[in-house]
């Protein structure tokens, strides 16, 4: 091979190099650092080199730690509940608002406002609204003639419901917007065909629209699930994990392990467990969709080949 052609072959890699360098520093280095840290007994007063290497002990400790288990369970419960509610309400709203009404674009903008508010502010807003005496909810309840207000943030069941409501309020618009976009790009003619085939509006929704939106909805679901597993600010401001451990999700526990208990290694180990869980979800979804696509492409190619003969 001549020098010139070798240089030619290397050109693309030369252009890719800057991006690779940035990726290595911005993405791989911090992750590698975190993975390494999870094998250390490390407090913030030490430099990383001074920390003791303790192997997998952080992980084995975590697996035996009932509080961490509780956190993990709260997180899964929280993610499952909020994402389910958000999907149902978001897609439902999109179905209702997928039509030409005057002022629709204004309405849509109003609908997505909650998503644009900083999470800390959302937390503060809801904390005031949940306030036992001056909050709007309890004042309304009392003005309706009930003696007692609801102990929004002081009862373990109600505080879970409270953080769920706040999260649903903030993130339903995200699903609404994506579902609406998916709905408006559905093939018109397939819906017209369903009209002619005699489908009612409800049948069109359940048998055509929702199944056709499924790819977008699954991606939306994944994005929300990943986010819900990591949610921190709103809950920190609203309940700070309490009362007890009733709303202490893993992200909050990681934060407190690092900040309050000064256990950087253990916090890193927790982060890794969370990361692995999310990775498993993402990779699973990725391979599933790849597999589907590959199968469809293969069969179509075979069909076209057949036709050519």
């Amino acid at each position: 091979m001549s020098a010139a052609s070798r240089a030619n072959r290397l050109t693309p890699y030369l252009f890719l190099a800057p991006a690779a360098v940035i990726l290595a520093f911005a993405l791989l280095y911090p992750i590698g650092y975190m993975v390494y840290a999870s094998f250390l007994d490390w407090s913030p007063s030490q430099r990383i080199g001074e920390a003791d290497f303790i192997g997998l002990r952080n992980y084995t400790n975590l697996l035996q730690d009932a509080a961490f288990g509780e956190s993990f369970w709260v997180t899964i419960k929280f993610a499952a509940v909020v994402v389910t509610l958000e999907m149902i309400i978001g897609v439902g709203l999109a179905l209702l608002l997928d039509r030409n009404i005057k002022g629709m674009s204004l309405l849509r903008t109003i609908f997505i406002l909650p998503m644009m508010i900083a999470p800390i502010v959302v937390g503060l807003m809801w904390r005031y609204m949940y306030h036992p005496t001056v909050g709007i909810f309890n004042r309304t309840i009392k003005s309706l003639g009930f003696e007692e207000g609801i102990p929004w943030l002081s009862d373990s069941t109600w505080s879970f419901i409270a953080v769920v409501i706040a999260d649903v309020w903030q993130w339903t618009p995200f699903i609404f917007i994506l579902a609406l976009a998916a709905m408006q790009s559905l093939p018109r003619s397939a819906l017209e065909a369903a009209d002619i085939d005699g489908a009612t509006e409800w049948q069109k929704i359940t048998l055509i629209k929702i199944p056709l939106m499924m790819p977008v909805l699954i991606v939306t679901l994944m994005l929300r699930l990943i986010d819900a597993f990591k949610v921190l600010e709103v809950i920190m401001v609203l309940t700070n994990g309490g009362p007890g451990l009733s709303t202490e999700i893993v992200a909050l526990r990681i934060f407190r392990t690092a900040q309050e208990f000064q256990e950087l290694g253990e916090a890193a180990a927790m982060s890794n467990i969370l990361l692995m869980l999310l990775m498993a979800l993402t990779i699973g979804m990725f391979f599933y969709s790849k597999l589907q696509e590959a199968r469809a492409a293969r069969m179509r190619a075979a069909a076209e080949q057949e036709e050519a003969h």
């Binding site: 017209e192 369903a194 002619i196 055509i208």
Partner: peptide
């Protein structure tokens, strides 16, 4: 009347098959 009440079948230009 709604399309379904008209006793018709239709073939569309882009076929309009249900992809799923």
């Amino acid at each position: 009347l709604e399309p379904k009440a008209r006793d018709l079948a239709m073939v569309f230009q882009d076929y309009a098959l249900y992809p799923h």
